[in-house]
Design a protein around this nucleic acid. Structure first.
Length: 221
DNA sequence: GCGACAG
DNA sequence: ATCTTGTCGC
């Protein structure tokens, strides 16, 4: 089963959260990408009310067939507010609980948000990757950095930059749609991440991992 | 001081 | 994230 390393307590203030990100940032590894990715997990959180109650949903998708082979949902509560740059402290605790309930250990976590494309290079995908020590990537619907529009063809991409540094890619998964923003989380390469996202998104803008997890969370009580 | 700012 | 009509396209 998936068990998170207890590398830090969950903070209640922004200052503590930033300090944790800076302390964990060096633990991100760039080697150890799986030779073959057979299953990929999609992670998403849906908010029911306005009171912090949430539903964390995880699906495991067979990359070859794009069918869902395992899933888990967990109801939870969040105390941490949404603050750009501190997104993980709002959603990661519930997502880790959901991951612990899976019976299949996926080859990679496909996170709904950024990995290295983050102000301190430690977005949600890096955070979940480091705590679980599983390979992970981030696929965001909007970007934090700067980029030039990629070509129109499916598969076209352009570098995503922050502070003069390439932190990910704007990747066109379908012709005529806005690109998605791919970045490395843990134990993965940017080339491999984009290749995987394209395989997971043969028909729609977002990868099937994100779509199935989103749908599961949204239709759960 | 002003704008920007994952979900 | 979430609140929402009509509309375009497969």
């Amino acid at each position: 089963m998936i068990r998170a390393r207890e590398l830090h307590p969950w903070p209640s203030t922004a200052a503590e959260a930033v300090a944790i990100q800076e302390r964990l940032r060096p633990l991100v590894r760039f080697d150890g990408e799986p030779a073959e990715v057979r299953t990929a997990a999609g992670l998403d959180v849906a908010y029911r009310d306005d009171s912090g109650r949430l539903v964390a949903a995880v699906t495991v998708v067979d990359v070859a067939t794009l069918s869902v082979v395992d899933s888990a949902i967990v109801r939870g509560e969040t105390d941490f507010p949404y603050v750009p740059g501190l997104f993980a402290f709002r959603e990661a605790p519930s997502l880790l609980r959901a991951l612990a309930e899976l019976s299949v250990v996926p080859d990679v976590l496909v996170c709904d948000g950024q990995g290295l494309a983050h102000p301190r290079r430690f977005g949600l995908a890096c955070h979940l990757g480091v705590l679980t020590d599983l390979p992970s990537i981030g696929v965001g619907k909007t970007a934090m950095g700067r980029y030039e529009p990629p070509g129109e063809a499916r598969g076209a991409w352009s570098p995503l930059r922050m502070d003069d540094e390439v932190v990910g890619r704007a990747l066109r998964t379908q012709r005529g749609v806005k690109p998605v923003f791919v970045s490395v989380g843990h134990r993965f390469t940017l080339d491999g991440a984009c290749d995987l996202v394209l395989r997971l998104a043969p028909k729609y803008r977002l990868p099937e991992t994100t779509r199935t997890a989103d749908h599961l969370g949204r239709t759960a009580g």
